[in-house]
Write a protein that binds this DNA or RNA. Structure first.
Lengths: 355, 355
DNA sequence: ATTAGCACTCAAAAATGGTGAGTGCTAATA
DNA sequence: TATTAGCACTCACCATTTTTGAGTGCTAAT
């Protein structure tokens, strides 16, 4: 490196670096100079390549797992590769996912998306429910038996929450009716934020002698909305993680699996991806870049889908750093497009004549 | 073996066999004659033990993984050991599970049981919902928006099922009311079996012009009850499976995990344990004894819990054959007792004054 | 019936050695 | 000046051998 020590990669280096990484993605073996010498169209001898590789190593793009072995990409290397992919013309090919028939309940739909994604990519996948501020669409209180009131709360997106409420003595039928009217009058269209002390007071005063019970009911409802607001995450294909022993020893893999089962950590990740929006909604975390401790040896690719109301959710995969980023990104894009479509249609259908 | 070739185990052999297995359970290493010679209180030289061990091997209780190694138990050996445990005085010690506070919803309760069990035993655990014939306790139909009817169905045990039903045009309010009365009149207390063609016909005739819609509603309700009747299974601690590499290579482990995720196979197993009842509700499957193909290298221990109505469910663990059976059985017994209690109390509370 | 003693076995660990892919460096070349 | 050919060197990987030690079965003595 005489010319210019702090210069950026010149065209040739780029080509070589890409070739190295592409090759490594295919084979999983450290790639040597001779291989590249033939692999690329620029006719260079292995010696020249070796010099260039030495430079690339010095710059931190590649590394030797041990002396006298070929090179493998560093996180920085992967990052370069992934970024360079974006500049290429993208032909979003069709992914097979006719599986995605119309599903009524959000939960089933998302679970299915997770499955399809896992099936298509062979990685561990996660799908988050859209994070919009849920507002109450409909509340129904019913006396189930002498001691149990059932509050059924439907929030938009037709997510249904049930909440059993213990009461000491059964309410009379007409009182249940009254309550229902009261509740719906005040709460329809309300989000969690809207339910403030003032509103509660007003409602209590209107409930008269049943105010104490109302207390109970409120708690139930708040719990339910709270519940609905919680970031729900569905995962699939977690056992795929076992297929990539490069992720390290069993104990690490096991920790990874636990992180997945747990889902708490995942929700951080997902919140980040949703908030840090960018052009096409695709986020790629490589190795150390990931915010989840246990996944520093993996890569994470996520995509954001949007609902017409503006709510957003995330679908994503987690796999080894050595992954077919092109294909993964493609699949994710396709799925988000499909999801967006489903929601758009759902919207059209759902809202006709109601608002 | 001169005395009597086909004789049962004499007292000494039993003692030795137990010692071998107990030791193996602890260490996981093949156990040799010298170890036993010191381990037991019967003062015998290693040579004598060796002779006895040769006999035990011939009888199929233990085996050498290779010549000139110690012995490890066969499935038959484990079986003997486990059976002999039963005869001992059992002091059911307390397990720590104050975690089990009162939980309202069955689903949460069972999930928690699975967790507690996994936490206490460090094995993969499964818990099945009780399998009683669910009967409808309460049905509520409501118009959620212009196109969606929500059927809320409560079956006993306060399990709530929601079912969105698409309709082409909204029902008038009073019709919804009518439907509710109609539905509850006919269906309250009915099990899935009770809903036959005749009943449907009768109801249809009473529904008058809305009969076609009824069709739709029925399907929804049948689906829901069906759903409720399905054997639900909750698992936990599945990653514990990774901790026991003795279960074989990664690919086998991975298959096992998939079986667990899938839950279909598990339901067979659980049905069997529930039906093949025995004295204390404990079932132990060792190795080849298990009905699930993928688990031939594991042991499965299950316990049955009972609800006052007679419904039964299963909790169980899956681990390596080399497992602390005593502790596991203990933990299971404790948990079932606790579960039985919870349900009994629930019953008392629930049924007062209703029937 | 039990035991001491001894030769034998064999898995697992450690030592050994060969192979080859790949490197860095130097000197020759275009 | 950039490229290349050539060469010595490194080191993971593999297969083979050696060593070790726990454990056995058998026999003869108690």
């Amino acid at each position: 490196m005489r010319k210019d020590d702090c210069m950026e990669l010149d065209e040739r280096k780029k080509k070589i670096l890409k070739a190295i990484i592409a090759n490594y993605l295919e084979t999983g073996e450290p790639v040597g100079s001779r291989t590249i010498s033939k692999y690329t169209d620029l006719n260079l001898s292995s010696a020249t390549i070796r010099n260039e590789m030495a430079d690339l190593e010095e710059m931190g793009y590649i590394i030797q797992p041990h002396t006298s072995a070929g090179r493998i990409p560093t996180d920085t290397g992967y990052r370069f590769y992934v970024d360079s992919l974006k500049e290429e013309k993208e032909e979003v090919e069709e992914t097979k996912s006719a599986l995605l028939e119309r599903v009524d309940r959000m939960e089933l739909l998302l679970k299915q998306v997770a499955k399809v994604l896992a099936y298509n990519t062979n990685y561990a996948t996660m799908v988050s429910a859209p994070n919009y501020k849920k507002t109450v669409k409909f509340i129904q209180l019913s006396q189930v038996d002498s001691e149990n009131l059932l509050a059924v709360i439907v929030v938009d997106g037709n997510i249904v929450k049930n909440q059993m409420i213990r009461v000491n003595e059964p309410l009379e039928n007409e009182n249940v009716l009254k309550f229902n009217i009261l509740l719906n009058t005040f709460l329809q269209g309300a989000s969690l934020d809207d339910i403030n002390l003032e509103m509660i007071q007003t409602m209590k005063s209107q409930a008269g002698e049943y105010a104490p019970i109302l207390e109970n009911i409120f708690q139930g409802i708040i719990d339910a909305i709270h519940d609905a607001n919680e970031l729900e995450i569905y995962t699939s294909g977690t056992t795929n993680i076992l297929k990539y022993p490069e992720l390290g020893d069993i104990s690490k893999t096991s920790e990874l699996l636990e992180t997945f089962e747990d889902k708490n950590e995942l929700s951080h990740l997902i919140e980040e991806t949703v908030n840090k929006d960018n052009e096409d909604g695709i986020h790629i975390y490589i190795g150390e870049e990931t915010p989840v401790e246990n996944m520093k040896d993996c890569s994470i690719v996520t995509a954001t889908y949007k609902m017409p109301e503006g709510a957003k959710g995330t679908i994503g995969i987690i796999g080894p750093k050595r992954m077919d980023y092109k294909k993964v990104v493609n699949t994710l894009k396709n799925l988000t497009i499909e999801l967006d479509d489903i929601f758009k249609k759902g919207k059209e259908v759902n809202d006709d004549g109601q608002k």
